[in-house]
Design a protein around this nucleic acid. Structure first.
Lengths: 343, 343
DNA sequence: AAACGTCTTTCTAGCGCTGTACATTGACGG
DNA sequence: CCGTCAATGTACAGCGCTAGAAAGACGTTT
């Protein structure tokens, strides 16, 4: 590996280490001739600066950690891509910490931040709550994503989940749905996100004068498409009548589409479906999926902005940024009541 | 950040730095009483070792880089998840380098390896070829994935693409397909993978005595589902007749399903479809997607095994590990000729 | 009681690079 | 012809931690 050191180059070029360092860093006041000579030595030896040493000397790591529950969840993988691109643009590398929603792993994330490993952390917690994080938060650069926790002193980026759920549910109401289900609530873990989405869903029904029916709140065993399939299939089996489903994420929506298809119901004629996250899958299901679309680019940009302000020294109270969203309307819940045989 | 240093703890506990270090590292020969006292000081101060400094001193970074073209490609996001889990298991952190198939970015990956940033690199190249990599390979730990390049001196893990394509195509032939298309070839970039899959496809046809028809090799503009849709739609429009499609990845397969659906063809009755990568989508399309399934767990395990041997000092020629695959049969290309109305 | 061994703990020299403080040089104006 | 200033270079002290050498403590053996 990096055998060649700064001093080796310096000796070969017959100059001091600092001069070599200046050349490496494009420091302006280096005489052209010397610069040439040093550059030649660098090239000849194939010198690469040791980044670890540089870090120790400068105190900056040039890295941010991205801590998310699952890399291969479509929402998070798309988010990661944006993060990676933005990080490159801003000169950071990103180290991935997959928490798998494990509380111990989530706690470990915050520890790393203290260990001089990264300049900052972008963290989407699932299990840690406001208080847990506040307790561990030592004031080092940290930006939270999602709705699980929002300590007073910590920066935070999210979309307005209540209003997004309101939009989604209103959309179904406008197309004539009256028995609208919510998929889904997970027994062990009512996260902030699910709560807020449920709230928006309920508000939309109330404002439309539609009676809330507990039977229409579907529960699932875990956040997977398979669990979504089972949940909807069971509701159908129980004889629950419904003509619309608001899903808390696209995976559930895909599961719902499958269960409805398997039971011979057609979407959107019999049941309209709205997903959430607008992952790329939404455009390729049959029928294509109407989905709540958080502005991922804006989330990432906001997160980095906040993080860099912290890195630059901001020490004030937490800023809470609400990023925009929209409803991406596709076939599974089109704009108007729809009897075509498109699907 | 990590204000508290080893020496601060040492002073508080009234011992030397080395003793604190011994406690941190669970060095056995520390008197219980002292250990207690030191631990108390550590807890009181909230000391976290500075990993950067540790790295400089030990020369080990405890990190591996994972360099892939796109994080949000389902195959790579699933692979990343396995990598992240295996890395955690083996005590590494992973830094993600998204190359976006850009040659300069791919080159940069190999440079980092020289910069003491990581202990090793797992790299899935797309644009760099065997010679490029061989030129830049300085003998530091590196494992290549995929089929784009395989320099003699570098370790390499892949599945047998030719035989997997053979399997997929034979499967379609066995269900009665005779006009089988291949989706798809990309004009600017015949990667090793595509070549090998095309080769297996052709071999299967030849061994079955089916004439090769260039019209059945569909081209696409890029590796996206959308491009897959267009490619298949155009073929249909041109009047190309086909009753089966072997797709080089699941994204293309999803695009194919969509195009077929839009044109009123039913799958698998009119056209059977086989995807590649067996990403989780395959189980949730309608119909569900038969797909070539590389053994991702085995790929990741093999990659880490090779990497760790290199890290441990192996300096020999490159090992080339072929990992198993299977064909995950689902509705889009069931086992037997099939006229049911399942889909 | 002296000599010896085994534990424990301290001392200290790096790891490779950066950045401050200082030395040198040459150009230029007075 | 000297003093001054800007432009270039050099020297070297850390950054925080590790690990091997050296020293100290304590009990045992002869």
């Amino acid at each position: 590996m990096a055998r060649v050191r700064l001093i080796d180059v310096a000796e070969l070029a017959g100059v001091s280490m600092k001069t070599v360092s200046n050349v490496v860093h494009d420091y302006p006041h280096v005489a052209p001739a010397l610069r040439q000579k040093v550059q030649a030595a660098i090239d000849q030896l194939g010198y690469r600066p040791n980044l670890t040493a540089r870090r120790l000397a400068t105190g900056k790591t040039g890295m941010v950690a991205l801590a998310i529950p699952e890399i291969d969840h479509p929402y998070f993988s798309e988010l990661s891509r944006h993060i990676a691109e933005e990080a490159t643009r801003r000169g950071y590398r990103v180290i991935i910490e997959q928490t798998l929603s494990d509380p111990a792993a989530e706690r470990a994330v915050l520890n790393d931040r203290e260990a001089g490993l990264v300049d900052g952390v972008i963290f989407h917690p699932v299990r840690m709550e406001t208080l847990d994080i506040a307790k561990l938060d030592a004031g080092a650069p940290l930006v939270l994503l999602g709705e699980a926790a929002m300590p007073v002193m910590t920066d935070h980026v999210m979309i307005d989940n209540v209003s997004a759920a309101l939009d989604a549910t209103r959309h179904l109401l406008a197309s004539g749905c009256r028995r609208i289900a919510f998929l889904g609530v997970i027994a062990a873990d009512i996260t902030g996100s699910t709560n807020q989405r449920l709230l928006g869903y309920q508000r939309a029904l109330l404002e439309a004068g539609v009676q809330l029916d507990p039977e229409l709140i579907f529960t699932a065993s875990e956040f997977t498409a398979e669990a979504g399939v089972r949940s909807v299939a069971e509701a159908i089996e129980r004889g629950v009548r419904f003509d619309g489903v608001v899903c808390r994420d696209d995976r559930f929506a895909i599961g719902a589409l499958k269960a409805l298809h398997d039971s011979g119901r057609s979407v959107p004629e019999d049941v309209a479906v709205v997903g959430w996250d607008n992952t790329f899958l939404a455009a390729y299901t049959s029928p294509t999926l109407t989905s709540v679309a958080p502005n991922k680019t804006a989330i990432v940009a906001a997160a980095f902005d906040l993080l860099e302000e912290r890195i630059a020294g901001y020490r004030g109270v937490g800023r809470h940024v609400i990023v925009g969203h929209s409803l991406e309307v596709r076939e599974s819940a089109p704009v108007a009541p729809d009897d075509s045989d498109l699907a």
